[in-house]
């Protein structure tokens, strides 16, 4: 049983209408969080590491949730058009994961500094 082209004898009129796009702003926020997490490697300080760690770990999850929610809503609308290069959902997911992991690195840096400051 071969799979034929979708355009071959379409059963219905399935052409997408005008379209919604992925939530670029939300995903952009995720990207900014990633940049922030990476930038934290170029500065030192216990407090700074802690702040960056918190933002990276929890902010990435929150931003991901928001992006996913917005994307879901848009996808339910007719004419939704995903990005061609990479799926918005995939991109959002990877941004979250990377940022989250970097946040953990900052947690480790903060822990190291913590042991120094408090002589643990």
């Amino acid at each position: 049983m071969a799979l034929t082209s979708p355009n071959e004898s379409p059963a219905f009129s399935l052409a997408p209408t005008k379209g919604a796009r992925p939530p670029a702003i939300a995903i952009g926020v995720q990207a900014m969080l990633l940049v922030l997490a990476l930038g934290g490697f170029f500065v030192d300080g216990l407090a700074l590491d802690i702040v960056i760690a918190l933002i990276s770990v929890f902010g990435s999850v929150l931003a991901f949730g928001v992006a996913r929610m917005l994307d879901d809503r848009r996808r339910t609308s007719a004419g939704y058009s995903d990005w061609s290069i990479v799926s918005a959902r995939s991109l959002s997911l990877w941004l979250m994961l990377i940022t989250w992991i970097i946040g953990l690195v900052h947690v480790w840096r903060a822990a190291i500094e913590f042991t120094r400051v408090y002589n643990l």
């Binding site: 071969a2 979708p6 219905f12 399935l14 052409a15 879901d72 996808r75 339910t76 939704y80």
Partner: peptide, 30 residues
């Protein structure tokens, strides 16, 4: 919070036509 019905893009129509199965996005038909 964000679970939704599957959108139109989550479905395809597969129609049997003789020995073939044709796939067509549901798209705006929903």
């Amino acid at each position: 919070m964000t679970a939704q019905l599957p959108s139109a893009h989550d479905f395809f129509f597969y129609t049997t036509k003789q020995s073939d199965i044709m796939r067509t996005p549901v798209g705006g038909s929903l």
